[in-house]
Design a protein around this nucleic acid. Structure first.
Lengths: 128, 128, 128, 128
DNA sequence: GTGGTCTAGACCACC
DNA sequence: GTGGTCTAGACCACA
């Protein structure tokens, strides 16, 4: 497991997003055990406190739950996971549309740009 | 003039984006005069240092130029403006596609989601 | 037998409190046999080590005594039980009064709030 | 400003409670500036990270708000403060009543015990 | 073994 | 000056 860190976003947020992605796409299933703080920290070559912070935030969002002395687990409430997915998608989408509008793009232009871009990347394949 | 500030992004970046938006959409045209630091700072109720920083960055990107003793002006090179617009659009778009892919959405799903979202917002209100 | 565990307090403390409650209210009488570690652990779905720890602490407080090869029993000294009850009540009460004072409540307000709250709960349901 | 720390509760929680108390009792008013991380840390002789943690939690509860580079302030929404006060009082009260019931005390006994205890402390004065 | 907290100290971005 | 993040390393309680 590796994550390419982007310097502009706190590491703990990037790990959060990564883990949320794993859950939302079903790679981590409800009830699955999550790597321990120490394990993940050594995997990612970062400080355990940073991982701790990540998990603390995930727990606050009720995506993850702690069983004392036994580790952390993906929430077993599937509904919660669906909600998270929708929230994240809405967030990404809204941010995008607002960005495009600020640049002067209108409805159809935006859709067209996306369609074209999606096409390109499918053709190229590669950096997904 | 008001901007809703997002706590997660530096204010000076948000003002930069706002001004770039004004330029790119033609509300500020090549060669137009830009408000002074003091004026903008008092308009937006923020620290003049922050506005200063904004302009400094805009100058570094050669979107704005200073004429000594006469204030700051939008660059008169229209090509530069087009370039900026393309860069910004590509950035917004790429970030979006990457985000959706991380959530498990595939090509056509993404286009569909955008189309639907654009429809909604057009129906609700028309503030571009 | 079920206990709703509160995540902020060690489980063994919560079980201790539960058992002390049973003793102090007379549901477990002086000299009564107490369930074995294994039995209680499987009842409560927790680690036997945790139950062991509970009993160990109860013994330290001389509320429970071990008879070799025969299991554990509630102390037969009734005076000890009364003492425990008083200590626990004083503790709960002091903590409460201190808490209310920190919130700016004065003497009579506190009594009134308790009176009202007790009334409510009696009306709603009767699970003591 | 001094706080006597209790070893059984995390320091950052104790500071949270202390500050909430100050706000709820009106010693810190809506919009008031809160001491900086470094200042409070040196006052209380604890690590700045611990204070940071305190403020982070208070911010999550929207009791406190950060103005970038300018420090932290008590929320100016008075309604929020009233809500907090009620929540805290309810919490303290419920915990108390539950505790007393577990010890076998019934409605009127509880009220009486409180009335007596409040009387005592008023008479003694002192360790409040 | 697990997570939770705390200290010490550093660096950075922002205002 | 302010807060935000990260590292390093320690200690403790819990299961």
């Amino acid at each position: 497991m590796t994550i390419e860190f982007d310097n502009n976003l706190p590491i703990y947020i990037q790990i959060m997003n990564y883990i949320k992605g794993e859950i939302v796409t079903g790679k981590l299933k409800p009830g699955d055990k999550i790597p321990s703080v120490r394990e993940l920290a050594s995997d990612l070559q970062i400080n355990p406190n940073t991982v701790q912070r990540t998990f603390q935030e995930l727990e606050r969002e009720t995506i993850v739950e702690t069983r004392r002395g036994m580790g952390r687990y993906v929430t077993s409430e599937e509904g919660r996971i669906m909600t998270i997915k929708k929230e994240m998608a809405k967030d990404v989408l809204d941010r995008f549309i607002r960005g495009m509008r600020e640049l002067g793009f209108q409805g159809e232009d935006i859709v067209a740009a996306v369609a074209e871009s999606v096409g390109h990347e499918d053709a190229e394949k590669g950096d997904v």
